[in-house]
């Protein structure tokens, strides 16, 4: 039976996370691409990192049975992270399109629901 290698997963995640961070900081500092591309990468980087957390969180509840209390905790946590991801994506889209985001935007609805629910 093929054994599950925890170290390999950790190493892979570390390399991916490191590359996302370095690419984000490099693009922010030097703006090497066109203005639109830079904005897409910077706002996309934030959304991608939130999406990564949301995706991993979504896998966790499946390891619990329906009647186990931790399933509700992790499901709520996963929903929360998806709402955060949607909010980041909307904020990034508005900023890329308009160059600024109003005090109250549709992204705030997701942040508010996310925190309070």
């Amino acid at each position: 039976m093929k054994s599950f290698n925890v170290k390999r997963y950790r190493l892979f995640a570390f390399i991916v996370f490191f590359l996302i961070t370095v690419f984000f900081a490099w693009t922010f500092a030097l703006a090497p691409f066109s203005e639109t591309a830079n904005l897409l990468i910077l706002n996309g980087g934030t959304t991608l990192s939130a999406l990564t957390a949301a995706f991993i969180l979504t896998l966790i509840p499946f390891y619990y049975h329906q009647d186990e209390p931790p399933r509700v905790i992790w499901t709520a946590f996963a929903v929360c992270m998806w709402l955060w991801t949607i909010a980041e994506a909307i904020w990034g889209y508005l900023y890329t399109r308009d160059g600024e985001v109003p005090v109250f935007s549709s992204a705030d609805i997701f942040w508010l629901v996310d925190i309070s629910r």
Binding site: R10, F17, T21, F24, S49, L59
Partner: peptide, 21 residues
């Protein structure tokens, strides 16, 4: 500040990955 924000999401992802593993 912006890099810290991205890293913070990735730290959450790391914490959830540890739970998953």
């Amino acid at each position: 500040a912006d890099t810290l924000y991205v890293v913070a999401y990735l730290v959450v992802a790391w914490g959830c990955l540890e739970q998953y593993l």
